[in-house]
Write a protein that binds this DNA or RNA. Structure first.
Lengths: 244, 244
DNA sequence: CTGTATTGTTGGCTAACTGCCACTATATAG
DNA sequence: CTATATAGTGGCAGTTAGCCAACAATACAG
C-alpha cells in the first residue's frame, strides 16, 4: 500500500497488524528500616502468577497516563500515597520469556522514601508489605521481578557513591551519623567518619537546624541537618567525584 | 471472567483487549571525525515522517528478537555492519505525542564506533549518513529524535567522565594525545595533559605497542597504545572517581 | 647541514584531599 | 561520682591534582 501524504497515511493507518509487545511499568520502592534495606511488594490478586509477590506496577493506561514518568508516579502513589521526590527510571527490559502472556517490555523505575508502615498508606492496599532484601530468597516472586529488584538495587548502590541520594530515605531533620548509616547501608560498605563529614559539609548541601538526640538515642546530642533551601537540585545531581 | 489456574488463565488469555502502546528501539550511533562529534541518521523512506532524518531503529520483531538488547544489536548491524563493543541502553521514553500513530514507547540505545564512511557499511543502506551534531539545527528530524539525540549525547558526556569509553571511538593503536582529544570532545571540556596521562597510565588499562607518527602528523613520534589484553571488562566499568 | 616549528614526554613544585586515629565534649544510667 | 555511649575535632602522613617549564625527537625550509 502506498500513501500520498502524511495525512493520507494516518487516515488509513491502524495498528492491528503489528505483533506488538505488552508494555508495563514497574516501580521498586526502597526504604531503610531497622537496619535493613527493604522493598515494597504487592501480593498479586490475579492471574498470571496469582499469589506471588510482585513490584507495584502494571500496564500503561494510554488514556490517562501522559508519559512513562507519569505512569510511574501514578503507580507509586496508588501504593504509597506518596509523591516521592526521588523516582527515576532505571532501565527497560524486554524479552519473550519474562511474562507467560508473551513478548513484553517493562520500564523499571526506582523510588526511595522514608519508612512508614504500609498501614499508613492508601487504605485499599492491604496486600502490600515491606520485604527486607535479604529475606527475598525464601519467597516466590512474580515474573522476572527478582532480577528487576537486583538491577534496581545495583543502581541504587552506584548512585549513592556520587550523589546525596540517601537523604531521601531519612525523616527530617537528621543527624550526620544517621546520614552516614544510610550511605553505608545503601552502598553496602563502611565509611570513615571524619572523611564522610568533611565531604558532606564541604559540599554545602545541608543546613544545620539546631541539635538534639534522636529518639531512643544516647550520648552527646548531635547537630540536626536538613537539605539546604535552594539545594533541591543538588539532591539529584552528582555531588561527589567530579571525574577527570 | 475468573480462572481456576495459571494454565486455565493462559488458555483463555489473549492480548487483543489491551490498548497497548507501540514499541520501538532506536540507536544513536556516535563517532568522532574531523574534530566533530557525529551521529548516524537515516532518511525515512516511508510514512510517517517520510523524508525526514531519523535514528536507525524501528519496531521490535517479537519473532526473531530474543530481547531488547538483541533488537538493538540487530538494528546497529543492519545500518553499519558493525558488531559494536559499546552498545548500551540509555533510557526509554513514552508518551502519546511522539509518534503520530499514537501512544508509543521507544527504548533508546547508544553506540560508539570508530569512524568509517557510510559507503563502507552494508551496501543496501544508501540513505544513511553521518551528521555533525552542531549541524542538526538546520534539518528536519523525525518524531522526537532531536530530543533523543540530546539525551544520548548527555549520557555520553557523563559516562566519559568516569570510564574509558572514548577508546571505543579510536582506531587501534592510538596515541595518548589522540585519546585525550577524544575525551575532550566527548566531555566538551579541556583536560590538563600531565594529569590526564597520569590517570590513564595509572589505571593500567592500556598497553604500549611500539611508537610512530599518526598519519598526517608532525613532530616527535608518539608511543602507541591499545587496550591491555584482559582489560576488556574495564572498558565498560567505572575507572575514574571511585566516589566516597 | 642548520635552524625552526611542531608535537611528545617528563620532572618537580604547591595545594588540596584522604585515610587514620587519638583526643575532647556532652549526654544518660546506676 | 563513675562508667558508658555517642558526637565532634585536631593533626599528620601519604596520595592526588593542577600547573608549567624543560627536554626530546621528528619534519621541513633554506
Amino acid at each position: 500500500m502506498t500513501y500520498r501524504s502524511e495525512a493520507d497515511f494516518l487516515k488509513q493507518y491502524n495498528a492491528r497488524d503489528y505483533d506488538s509487545p505488552l508494555v508495563t511499568v514497574d516501580v521498586a520502592i526502597f526504604t531503610l528500616h531497622e537496619g535493613a534495606l527493604q522493598v515494597l511488594l504487592v501480593e498479586r490478586g490475579d492471574f498470571p502468577h496469582k499469589g506471588r509477590w510482585a513490584l507495584p506496577g502494571g500496564f500503561i493506561d494510554i488514556h490517562s497516563d501522559d508519559d512513562l514518568d507519569a505512569c510511574a508516579h501514578r503507580k507509586l502513589k496508588e501504593k504509597t500515597g506518596v509523591a516521592a521526590p526521588l523516582l527515576e527510571q532505571v532501565c527497560s527490559k524486554g524479552n519473550g520469556l519474562r511474562d507467560p502472556r508473551g513478548w513484553s517490555v517493562t520500564a523499571l523505575y526506582m523510588a526511595l522514601i522514608p519508612h512508614a508502615p504500609t498501614a499508613d498508606f492508601v487504605a485499599s492496599v492491604n496486600d502490600a508489605r515491606w520485604w527486607p532484601l535479604d529475606q527475598l530468597g525464601g519467597i516466590e516472586l512474580a515474573f522476572d521481578h527478582r532480577s528487576l529488584i537486583a538491577t534496581a538495587r545495583e543502581r541504587l548502590k552506584n548512585k549513592t557513591a556520587y550523589t546525596v541520594l540517601p537523604v531521601h530515605v531519612l525523616k527530617r531533620p537528621f543527624t550526620l551519623t544517621q546520614l552516614q548509616r544510610a550511605f553505608e547501608q545503601l552502598m553496602d560498605a563502611t565509611l570513615e567518619k571524619k572523611s564522610f563529614r568533611r565531604r558532606i559539609l564541604n559540599a554545602e548541601i545541608l543546613e544545620e537546624v539546631g541539635e538534639g538526640i534522636p529518639e531512643g538515642g544516647r550520648g552527646r546530642p548531635a547537630a540536626l541537618y536538613q537539605p539546604a533551601t535552594g539545594s533541591e537540585q543538588h539532591l539529584f545531581a552528582r555531588v561527589f567525584g567530579e571525574g577527570l
